[in-house]
Design a protein around this nucleic acid. Structure first.
Length: 261
DNA sequence: CGTATCCTGACC
DNA sequence: GGTCAGGATACG
């Protein structure tokens, strides 16, 4: 369930479950997660109080009262399951945060690609992130500035978290369709007018997702996607047919009829 | 820049 | 049994 609106939602769930509470136990259960969070490191979080939860791009940060931070990334499939300490852990639980009051938050991720790290005060395992995709100041001049130095296709540029933090494969496809820009278009060569269209398309796509009930992972949610996962289906805007290509080893869906370079 | 890789389940 | 998956990064 990645993509920014879902991570924003997850961060709110995490806030309600943990802020103001003391961490009783932090533990990675799966070997792949233990590599980044070995038991000896995880134990440092015990006894600390969660002061706040932040989201940066698709990372969730739990700030603790000694200045350390638990940094979580869901990658492809991660999600929170909030329950009581006495509840059985859901299937595919990869890490657990137990807090005072008998609550526990389980990180559920069948692929085990999620990551949890504990940074000491002053450390940061966060990569360099660009402007947050939901930031109001995202506009054509920001896009123009960051695109100018790169030779990549606009789709690849938008997926780069150091350019814009929080955009994933689905919303990039949807935003490009809305803006009528081909994913193959060279990022650096887009006109200011088209970048303006793109910036407002990004806002529109993220805004709509944040407001609507249900998620795109559900059948109902999929219906509002114009191109993602719709190879071979008719375009909603022109008489073209949605095609799928591969860019940077990821699927790209678009309409060759109305999305131009 | 593109490609391989982490990991495991779901689906054809 | 093969292929695919919404992410990110290390590598060539």
């Amino acid at each position: 369930m990645p993509e920014l609106p879902e991570v924003a939602f997850a961060a709110r769930v995490l806030t309600r479950a943990t802020v103001g509470r003391k961490i009783v136990r932090l533990q990675a259960l799966h070997p792949a997660l233990k590599r980044k969070l070995p038991p000896a490191i995880a134990r440092r979080a015990a006894g600390r109080t969660v002061t706040s939860v932040e989201r940066r791009g698709k990372h969730q940060l739990l700030n603790l009262d000694d200045g350390s931070t638990i940094v979580v990334h869901f990658r492809m499939n991660g999600d929170w399951d909030v329950g009581k300490t006495t509840d059985p852990l859901p299937e595919f639980t990869r890490a657990v945060i137990e807090v005072s009051g008998g609550k526990r938050v389980a990180l559920v991720d069948r692929r085990a690609l999620s990551s949890v790290a504990l940074d000491r005060k002053g450390e940061s395992s966060l990569p360099k992130l660009g402007l947050d995709a939901s930031d109001k100041s995202l506009d054509a001049s920001y896009l123009s500035k960051t695109f100018s130095r790169r030779s990549s296709a606009v789709k690849t540029a938008l997926m780069d978290q150091s350019v814009i933090a929080g955009l994933g494969n689905i919303y990039v496809a949807e935003a490009l369709w809305l803006a009528q820009i081909s994913p193959k278009a060279a990022a650096a060569k887009l006109s200011k007018a088209r970048l303006e269209k793109l910036a407002s398309a990004i806002k529109k796509v993220l805004g709509a997702e944040a407001r609507l009930p249900g998620r795109y992972t559900e059948k109902k949610g999929r219906q509002r996607l114009a191109v993602y996962g719709r190879e071979g289906e008719p375009c909603r805007r022109c008489d073209g047919t949605i095609s799928r290509i591969v860019q940077a080893a990821r699927s790209t869906y678009y309409c060759p009829g109305c999305q131009k370079s």
